[in-house]
Design a binder for these strands. Sequence first.
DNA 1: TCTGTTTGCCAACGCTTGTTGGCATAACGG
DNA 2: CCGTTATGCCAACAAGCGTTGGCAAACAGA
Lengths: 186, 186
Amino acid sequence: MSGERPRRSDGTRAAILRAARERFAADGYERATIRAIAADAAIDPSMVMRYYGNKERLFAAAAEFDLRLPDLSAVPDEEVATVLIRHFLDRWEGDETLMALLRAGVTNPAAADRMREIFATQLVPLAERLAPGEPLTRAGLVASQVLGLALSRYVLKLPPITAMTRAEVVAWTAPAVRHYLRGRPD
Amino acid sequence: MSGERPRRSDGTRAAILRAARERFAADGYERATIRAIAADAAIDPSMVMRYYGNKERLFAAAAEFDLRLPDLSAVPDEEVATVLIRHFLDRWEGDETLMALLRAGVTNPAAADRMREIFATQLVPLAERLAPGEPLTRAGLVASQVLGLALSRYVLKLPPITAMTRAEVVAWTAPAVRHYLRGRPD
DNA sequence: TCTGTTTGCCAACGCTTGTTGGCATAACGG
DNA sequence: CCGTTATGCCAACAAGCGTTGGCAAACAGA
C-alpha cells in the first residue's frame, strides 16, 4: 500500500531533485530556472514538468528537510549549547537544502511557510525538553541566532564572520544560545 | 561645484526612488519589476530608465543607507546593548531601505556588497570605541544577531518572534549582544 | 512477436521582463 | 516672440520565462 515499486525513471527524478536543490540554494527561487535545473540534470525541461507538475511543486519536493536534532538528554547542561551549534553548522554545511530554504524563503511565501513549519515542529519540541518554561520563545530566539549566523556566514559572507574558524564561531555563540535556552531576560 | 541646481523633474525622481524602495523591500530584487515601480510612482517605465539608467543603478540609488548609530560614549556599560538593539529596531521599522537590502542581498551580489560595506564602515567603528579588543569579530557577531532577529521577525515572521513585544525582544536579546560586545568566548 | 506504456526530446505557445527610440507637449532662455 | 531643452507617454524590441502537446524510441507484459 505504501510501497511504490521502482520505476525506470527514478534516476532521472533523483537527478532533477539534486540539481533543483543546488540551483535553489545558489540562486534563490526566482533566479533558479527550470531550464537551468534541467540542463544541470542533463535532461529536457519538459521532463521536470512531467515528473513534478510545476515549479512550485518541484520546490516543495526539493525542500523536504529534517534537522535531525540529536537527543540531548544525556548531554551536560553546560555543553548543550555547544553541541547544538555544532550540529547546526554540520547541517548547514552538509546539506544544501537549508540554504535553498533560506535563499528562497526571503522572497517566496511557500518557502517561508516551510521554514516556519520546520522550526515549529522540530526545534520547539527540543526546547520543551530542555528549557525551564517558555519553550516557544526560547526556540524562536535560538532560531533567530542560528539563522543570523547562517545568513552572515554563508549568504552575505560578512568578512568578520567568514574569517572565524568553526571552533571560534562555536565558542563565541555558545554563551548566547545558552542564555536563550536557560537564561532569563533582563 | 557640489550644488546641483534643482530640476523640474525632481519630484518624479523622488517618487521613483520611494516606490523602488517599497517594491525592493516587499518583493526582493528580481520580483520587483521596473514596470511595477513605475506604476506605483504613476509614471511611465521608460522614465525610470531615463533617470536611473538601468535596474541595477536604480537599486544602488534606492539602497543608499545610513545606520545613524548614536554616540554611545555617555551610555553606561550595562545599557549599551539595550540602547543599541532599540536603535536597530527603530531603523528597521522606520525605514524600508534595510528591508530592501536584506531581501535583495540574499540573491543579488551588489546588494550583498552594499550590506557588507554598511556593516564594515558603520558598525565596526562603533565596536572599536566600545569593545575591549577584537572589534571586527565583535561587530560581526552583533550584526549576525541583529540580522537574524530582523530575518525572523520581519521577513520569515516566525510566530514565536512576532508574538513578542518590542520590550520582550530587547530584554531577551540584550544579554546576548552584551556578551558579543564585552564578553569572552567559551 | 505483438501491444500498450513509459521515457525522452523537440518545437512552440503565451506571457513578462528590461530596455530603446521616437514623438508630442510643456517649460525655459534669449 | 521663437528656438531649445526638458519631461512624459507610446509602441515596440529581443530575450527569457514556465508550461504544453505531440512524436519517436525504448521498454514491458502477454
